[in-house]
Design a binder for these strands. Structure first.
Lengths: 184, 184
DNA sequence: TCGAATATGTCAACATGGCTGACATAAATG
DNA sequence: CATTTATGTCAGCCATGTTGACATATTCGA
């Protein structure tokens, strides 16, 4: 397989000990990992891009569709918080997703100021199609790299800013619960 | 808090694995991995962003600086091939990097049509500073996730489109050789 | 040696998806 | 009832991608 990993001079702190950062001093730059991350992510988001062209959607649409799909009846403010964009940026792509019938808005029951967002059947179908593409890439990568799915999860999780990890965990588990509750 | 980052035995599969009967596609969507990849990459590129603000540079500048640093005397055409952007897009950011003294151009020796690109000392310093930030994130992630560096490399490598992997491997090893040859 | 191909640069226009600032509206809340 | 909150919207700017057309210098092949 990959004899890509032939860096010498790199046998140190990566094992146990310092959970909080290790010495920032003389570490060799991890060019290989940096570049692999760049190319991996490019291909990871590249798959959906082709499909999205059919509807003249871009990556911004994909992100909105995905997180609305995963969080049915999500409030606009919460979606903005996940995406970390402004409402003006969201408005453009959201309008197109609504106009083309992928997402719909409902007035909040308890708070009628809220416009709760959810995918339509059409939106769900597209979100699933895109998720499937990316899932297959992960499945291939895990199988071919000899890693376990769990290791991949832990590794990617640990790449996230420590302060944000709890939020991410909560978000994912909540979404899973909500979707499981809906479908079963 | 159902923490993602616990030992494998304790984790229940949030998605995947479960063979729940007649799936139309077979595999459960790996929402967890998809979203972790999204957040991980966001933070991965987020670190350099702050530093780049000092020079009013964006991510496009970062990518150009990085690959020119890694491939001294690279031809414009080869840089475009790595970045997969048009020469017009490159021109804008490259001009700023040259004007501010981070990159310089030399006329090709064998082919005088070529404008070979290389970083200046100033450019090298910035490229190293940015690479160091991302290296530290990887080191933390590897240590905290209990993966090996090698597993991370193999996993990210396997996330790349199969047809592209050989090119990526060749590019990385060539760059490593070139840089080692220069510095030692 | 000359014409074609190549490497690069540049001008112009446009698309996408970020941003800020200002303001409007409806509903909740004290 | 006044204020706050949730959301929408208009207007304009910025960064970074695109296509198309064309210019220049240099190399290369017949």
């Amino acid at each position: 397989m990959a004899d890509i990993n032939v860096s010498p001079a790199q046998r140190r702190p990566l094992s146990g000990t310092a959970v909080t950062g290790a010495e920032p001093a003389g570490r060799e730059p991890a060019y290989e990992l940096i570049e692999l991350m760049f190319f991996a992510y490019r291909d990871f988001v590249g798959d959906p891009d082709h499909v999205l062209e059919r509807y003249q959607f871009g990556r911004a649409h994909h992100r909105v569709l995905h997180f609305v799909f995963r969080h049915p009846e999500i409030r606009v403010a919460d979606l903005l918080d996940i995406l970390k964009i402004t409402k003006q940026s969201l408005a453009r792509v959201l309008k197109e997703l609504i106009d083309q019938g992928f997402i719909l808005q409902k007035e909040g029951q308890v708070d009628r100021r809220q416009r709760l967002l959810a995918v339509t059947d059409k939106g769900k179908a597209l979100a699933l199609e895109l998720a499937k593409l990316q899932t297959e890439r992960f499945a291939r990568a895990i199988a071919q790299s000899g890693t376990t799915r769990d290791q991949a999860v832990r590794f990617l999780y640990a790449m996230i800013d420590p302060e944000r990890r709890e939020d991410v965990t909560r978000m994912i588990t909540q979404a899973d619960r909500a979707l499981r509750g809906k479908e079963r």
